[in-house]
Design a binder for these strands. Sequence first.
DNA 1: TGAATCCATGTGCACGGTCACATCCGCGCC
DNA 2: GGCGCGGATGTGACCGTGCACATGGATTCA
Lengths: 339, 339
Amino acid sequence: MTDSVDRGKAPNIRDVARLAGVSHQTVSRVLNDHPSIRDSTRQRVLDVMNDLQYRPNRAARALVTSRSRTIGVLASQRSQYGPSSIIQSIESAAQDAGYLVSTANITKTDESSILTALNHLNAQAIEGLVIIAPQVRVFRAISNLDLRVPFVTMNTSEGTDDHAIAVDQVAGARLATRHLIELGHRNIYHLAGPQDWIEAEARMRGFLEEMNAQDVPTTAPILGDWSAEFGYYAGRELMRVRDFTAIFSSNDQMALGLMHAIRDAGQDVPHDVSIVGFDDIPEAAHFWPPLTTVKQDFPELGRRCVAQLLGTMDDQAAGYTGRIQPELIVRASTARPSF
Amino acid sequence: MTDSVDRGKAPNIRDVARLAGVSHQTVSRVLNDHPSIRDSTRQRVLDVMNDLQYRPNRAARALVTSRSRTIGVLASQRSQYGPSSIIQSIESAAQDAGYLVSTANITKTDESSILTALNHLNAQAIEGLVIIAPQVRVFRAISNLDLRVPFVTMNTSEGTDDHAIAVDQVAGARLATRHLIELGHRNIYHLAGPQDWIEAEARMRGFLEEMNAQDVPTTAPILGDWSAEFGYYAGRELMRVRDFTAIFSSNDQMALGLMHAIRDAGQDVPHDVSIVGFDDIPEAAHFWPPLTTVKQDFPELGRRCVAQLLGTMDDQAAGYTGRIQPELIVRASTARPSF
DNA sequence: TGAATCCATGTGCACGGTCACATCCGCGCC
DNA sequence: GGCGCGGATGTGACCGTGCACATGGATTCA
């Protein structure tokens, strides 16, 4: 009678304790891998847990430890390949470490939508934050709010370098640019990402650095919005001028739009114009022509994020300091200029 | 002295109560919009909350109410455009309703990885479940586990229709197929998705139904894996045969791969082969040639999911019964056959 | 042999909310 | 004037877990 478990209510540690003939604290110790538990006792408890289909109550645990075991992710453009791959790998890494992930998305880029997102995360009592929407104003909003939470960002920015886990975007952009220069191009445009995105800025910087290093004169980059749509319209405008033989696009989608516009203008890629993208989305190999691009290891990026964040949270020295080196993938969208 | 709030600890309702000169229960009532609170009292409490930067503790609330206010999402292929768009809209809809979203991803398709994912969600004490990985075996695993949680799935399958919120995949596939037939094609292949995906099956069914309805003889569909890569290799095989003038691909990525292979074989899309995709990913308009495809309203799908799920959870009649109608987007990848 | 130490386990309370129930007060009505 | 009633608020218990501390027995060592 006293042994019977109430129907319709999940069992708790006291139920387990009673059936195993120990105190609730012993059960708790088994749950937390406390060293000084006799093997026979542990086994008995585990058996009862199994019988009862016992699952620890996360809320109760969070309440008493005041640790939510949740990390927040602040993202934007979530449906794009890069962000979504990263989120996926963050989530699986966090899950392995026993953490939950709560994401908040920024749709509009205004200050208030950033605040809404951060407040949402704050309400979850997150213990750490990964920022995948590395816009300058996001950092501003964070320091204004002073959420006292360790955070990690995917990309470097002045003043936040402690937190940065980066694919070396600058190096990637230099690879792409160097490739074009080595092919013989001298009139190269850069179609950049949105102005306030840190990775857009880094890629732009890499482009300019390499151009300068090789003594090639540059024109001002065009600021885009990452979308194929924008690339297409930018390409239409550019094709009116035609004072270039190559374009380095800050991501693959815009590169796709560019190639579309170039064909529409009756020109050929790569014969008339060479195109390089960035990211190496899975589709890039099948674009027409297959796109030369810079490959980022998104899954690895996500894993490192979590590793570093958990490290910071536990006040450990945060292992990974090195950047992930991106890789140039040469495909058919680049060739020697045709003069 | 007694009024001072401990530093380093988040304020709780009792702190608020003390400073507002009321009982903790009154504070709780303010939090929960209880009707019988005098306006002046409410305002006083709200002011104190504001001063203290009070945030209700989700864990404590979850503990006492035994409601986690969390809904789970079981996904697969998360980094692809469709799933990630849906997840994004689910998340924002859930957030609006005061719910948290916890996602679990299935990478491998074996039974055990499904169980792992479901267990992960189960450990969160989710109150509802959205299934975006509508593989047949997922349903089997769910009924085996008998998680007593209401769930919703994106696509219909025999026996689970109560839970289905569907874009009418069959209708979409029929639209695509009819378009090809009306252009005059008679030898049409279908490149389907993985066998055990319910949406793949539905699109295949739509294809076959329409072909039958129009008395066009069909060949057995080819089973793919959704990737552009697969589309490419399938295309290479198909180009050896060349007994067709059109292919209906079950998604845009595979269509992209097909077009790549067709060009590699020296043939032209749409002159020699017409191609139709499915999904209308943002890049599809800029493929070469721009892809004729069937557009799904992913964000709406996500919103409905949440609406229906919350409805079911509150035992309300679950509003939306109608399917979302997909739309054919005709672009340059389809034309009359060239004989 | 007794004190110190360590191991294995138990006891009671705290965490921050909500719920059921109690209380107090003012008002209308017979 | 007494009674009932409902609005506004207070009191104490409880949710499931972990922590600090207590306990008792075995072992070690002076």
